[in-house]
Amino acid sequence: MTAPQVQVQAPLLQLNGITKVLKGQEEPRTILSGVDLTVHPGQSVAILGRSGSGKSTLLSLIGLFDRADEGQYFLHGNDITKLPERRAAALRSAEFGFVFQRFFLLKHLTAAQNVAMALVNGQGWSARRKRKQQVMDALEQVGIAHLAKSKPSRLSGGEQQRVAIARALVRQPRVILADEPTGALDTETGNLVVEVLLNTTRQGCGLVLVTHDHDHARKMGRVLELRDGRFN
C-alpha cells in the first residue's frame, strides 16, 4: 500500500509583515503595517479599501516599483526583499504584468507597437517576426487583434484598456497586477475587462486586483480589505 501523494503547490508570491513608512514629510506616516499576503498560481485576489488605505502602495511593493521598510518578500520561494534595481527590472519584465487605471498607451504608437513596448525593453531581444507573432497572440487573447494597426486615439476606452492588458500579457507573466483597471470605464466595459483578466488565471497566472468596485471584487477568488495599512 502506498501513501497518497500530497501535492503542495508553492506560493507564487508571499509577503510577510510588510511595512512601508512614507518619509520626507513633517512626520513619517505608516502606509502599510505588517501586511501578510500569499498568492498561488491561478489564484485571483481582490484588494478593497478606501483611498489612502495603501492599496496602490502594496501593489507597487509587489511589483518591485518600491521597497518595503520592513518584512520579507518571497517570489517562487526566493527572498527578493532586498533585490538590486537591475535585477528587479529583469523580474518586472519576466514575472509581472501591469494594468493601470489610466491606460498609459503612447499616442504616437499603434496598438501593436504599444504592446511590443514590453518586448523592446532591453531584457533580451527577439527577432521582429517572433515579436510580431507574440504581439498578435496577446491582442488575440484580449479579442482586439483586428485593431493592431490602430492608434490609441482611434480606440474606445475599453479597447485601450484591452491593449494595455495585452501589453501586460505579451511576456506571459506569472502575476498580473491591476490597479483599478475599470476605474475609467463604464460598467459593461469594466465587466468585459475583468473577464479578460480572470481568463488569465485559468492559464495559471496569479491576479492581484486593486479595486473600489465590490461587484468586480466578488468575481475574484479571495477578497481582502485594507484599512489603516492592515488587512481586516
Partner: peptide
Amino acid sequence: VEEFALRRAVGMSRML
C-alpha cells in the same frame, strides 16, 4: 515622465 515611468514598469532599467 509617464512614458518613462511606464517603460521602467515593464522592465526597462534606468541605464537603458
